[in-house]
């Protein structure tokens, strides 16, 4: 109990610090400031897009992971969880070396199509997806492994082909796992800083998400940074609570 209380305090105290230090008279001005709206909008766009991309790529990845065994599985698992242990800044450098103008993939893209990924909103989305997708994959894979295989077997025996089994049985049964994975993924993407600043850079309206805006503001106008953080916090809480009701009905 005491340890649980200590754990909770570790979360609550910094939050209390933010709220105690918050210049409440500035909240209004900060809220209507175009920079805030721009950064907040960009943050929501990037994090939600990253979550959508993670869903599209991550669920099939989790399926493959849950169906492999042995050494291959170990290797695949390690690869997918790598971004979780890699310092995000290193992740950003790695992304530059892969998708940058002179990177592995980026170089041909640039030469053939004149595409440049770094310093674009796409880069911010890629950075967030890179860092956040493992949370979704791990959650969905866990859900798949604990799924009673007889549901899928029953569906097959009733004449459903692989696609119908997946769409009508597997996917709906995985919904709680997908939901919690997507929430974790989205939260991680929303707070992403290191990989974004390294890979996507920092430009208001294009790649400056709220965490970057907070970092810049912290050094020039700390009060504004605190207000920005609180806004981010409030928006995430509102979305989490709203989604919970919509997706899971009564908890």
């Amino acid at each position: 109990m005491a340890l649980a209380a200590a754990g909770l305090l570790l979360f609550l105290l910094p939050l209390a610090g933010l709220i105690a230090r918050a210049p409440w008279n500035q909240v209004g001005t900060e809220l209507v400031a175009t920079e805030t709206a721009t950064a907040l909008g960009l943050s929501l766009f990037c994090s939600l897009t990253a979550t959508a991309v993670a869903l599209v790529l991550g669920i099939p990845l989790a399926l493959v992971l849950s169906r492999t065994t042995g050494t291959l599985r170990g290797v695949l698992r390690a690869l997918t969880t790598l971004p979780m242990v890699l310092p995000p800044v290193v992740g950003g450098v790695a992304l530059l070396l892969a998708f940058g103008r002179s990177g592995l993939i980026g170089s041909p893209l640039h030469q053939l199509f004149g595409l440049q990924i770094p310093f674009t909103t796409t880069a911010a989305v890629i950075a967030e997806t890179f860092v956040a997708m493992p949370f979704l994959v791990i959650a969905v894979e866990g859900g798949l492994r604990s799924l009673d295989s007889r549901y899928e077997e029953s569906a097959r025996a009733l004449g459903a082909n692989s696609w119908k089994v997946f769409a009508r049985v597997t996917l709906p049964l995985l919904r709680p796992a997908i939901f919690s994975g997507a929430v974790l993924c989205w939260a991680r993407a929303l707070g992403e800083f290191g990989a974004t600043i390294t890979f996507a850079g920092n430009l208001p309206g294009r790649t400056q998400t709220i965490p970057l805006a907070v970092y810049v503001a912290l050094e020039t106008r700390p009060d504004g940074a605190i207000v920005l953080s609180l806004i981010l916090l409030a928006v995430s809480l509102a979305i989490l609570i709203g989604l919970r009701d919509r997706w899971l009905g009564a908890p």
């Binding site: 009673d148 007889r150 549901y151 077997e153 029953s154 569906a155 097959r156 025996a157 009733l158 004449g159 459903a160 082909n161 009508r168 049985v169 709906p172 049964l173 919904r175």
Partner: peptide, 20 residues
């Protein structure tokens, strides 16, 4: 022949109805 093309029905011990 894969299960879905066999026209073989299987009923398990604890019904395994799709809960959703």
């Amino acid at each position: 022949v894969p299960t879905e093309e066999r026209r073989v029905g299987i009923v398990f011990q604890d019904h395994v109805l799709f809960p959703h």
